[in-house]
C-alpha cells in the first residue's frame, strides 16, 4: 500500500467538492431535507398521541444512522461513477495504483462523507428537534463504525456490478442500498417482519445495529451481542466482497471492459 497514491486519488475527489455546488448539495441539502421531513412526522405522531415510547429518538436516531450507511455506500459507488463519467479509469489503472489502493482511497472518501453528513445531521437534529444523538452513549461509536463498514460492503458490491455491466447499471449507485432497507429494520423492530425475512435479517449487519439502537433507547443497556454479531458479519462480508471485487476487476481486464466502461 502506497499512501502517496492513496492520497493522490483522494485529492482528485476532494478537488471536485471544492467547486461543485451539486456535490455539496449531496452532503448538505438532501440530509437536511430528510431530517426535516422525518422530524415533522415524529412531531405529528407525538401530537396525535400515538403511543410510541421515545418516538423522536427512534425515528431521528434511525434516520441519522441510516444516512451513515447510505453515504458510506455512496462514497464508494459514486467515486467509481466519477471516474467512469470522466473516462479516467485508464489513467488510473495504467498507473502504478493498485486495486487495493483504489479501494482504500474510496473507503476513506466515504468516511469523510459520513463525518460531514453525520455531524451536520446531529447538529440539525439538536437545533431543530432538541434531539441529542450523543445520548445513545458509548454504543454510538461501534454503531457508526459498523454501519460505515456495511456501507462499504454494499458500495463495493455496487461498484463491481457497475464495472461489469457499465452505464446501464449506474442507477444502482443510488438504489442498491434501498434493497437492504426493508431487512435492515431501520424504522421498525425486527419482530414485525415475517419469520422468513426475520431469518434473513439476522444475517444482515445493519439489522443488528438498528436493533441495538432500539435496545439502548429502551433499556439504556449496551447491546454487546448485537455489536459483536454486526462486527463479525461485517468482517465476513467485507472479506468476501473485496475478493469478489478483485475477481470482477480481473474478469473486466480479461474481457477488455476496463478500457470501455462508460462508453
Amino acid at each position: 500500500m502506497n499512501l502517496g497514491r492513496i492520497g493522490g486519488l483522494l485529492s482528485r475527489h476532494l478537488y471536485l467538492y471544492k467547486r461543485s455546488f451539486a456535490r455539496l448539495l449531496e452532503i448538505f441539502y438532501w440530509p437536511f431535507l430528510d431530517l426535516v421531513v422525518w422530524g415533522f412526522i415524529t412531531m405529528y405522531l407525538k401530537e396525535a398521541g400515538v403511543s410510541l415510547h421515545g418516538a423522536v429518538a427512534f425515528f431521528l436516531g434511525a434516520l441519522i444512522l441510516w444516512d451513515v450507511l447510505f453515504r458510506a455506500q455512496q462514497g464508494i459507488a459514486v467515486s467509481f461513477l466519477e471516474e467512469m463519467w470522466a473516462r479516467n479509469l485508464m489513467n488510473l489503472f495504467a498507473s502504478p495504483l493498485t486495486v487495493g489502493e483504489y479501494l482504500v482511497s474510496t473507503m476513506i472518501m466515504s468516511m469523510l462523507k459520513v463525518i460531514a453528513v453525520g455531524s451536520l445531521m446531529m447538529v440539525f437534529a439538536w437545533v431543530f428537534y432538541s434531539y441529542d444523538m450523543l445520548k445513545i452513549g458509548i454504543s454510538l461509536f461501534p454503531f457508526i463504525l459498523n454501519l460505515v463498514v456495511s456501507g462499504w460492503i454494499i458500495g463495493v458490491l455496487t461498484t463491481s456490478i457497475i464495472m461489469r455491466f457499465g452505464q446501464q447499471a449506474e442507477v444502482l449507485a443510488w438504489g442498491m442500498v434501498f434493497l437492504f432497507q426493508p431487512i435492515s429494520c431501520v424504522f421498525y423492530p425486527l419482530e414485525v417482519l415475517p419469520p422468513i425475512l426475520q431469518s434473513i435479517a439476522w444475517m444482515v449487519p445493519p439489522a443488528h445495529i438498528f436493533e441495538g439502537m432500539r435496545t439502548v433507547l429502551v433499556d439504556g443497556a449496551m447491546p454487546v451481542d448485537h455489536i459483536l454479531w454486526a462486527t463479525g458479519l461485517n468482517l465476513f462480508f467485507l472479506v468476501i466482497i473485496v475478493g469478489w471485487f478483485y475477481h470482477t476487476f480481473n474478469v473486466c481486464k480479461d474481457k477488455g471492459m476496463l478500457v470501455r466502461v462508460g462508453e
Binding site: 502506497n2 502517496g4 493522490g8 486519488l9 502504478p96
Partner: peptide
Amino acid sequence: EENLKVIARLYS
C-alpha cells in the same frame, strides 16, 4: 494543474 498534481501523486 490539479489533474497534473493527481497524476504526479499516483506516480510518487
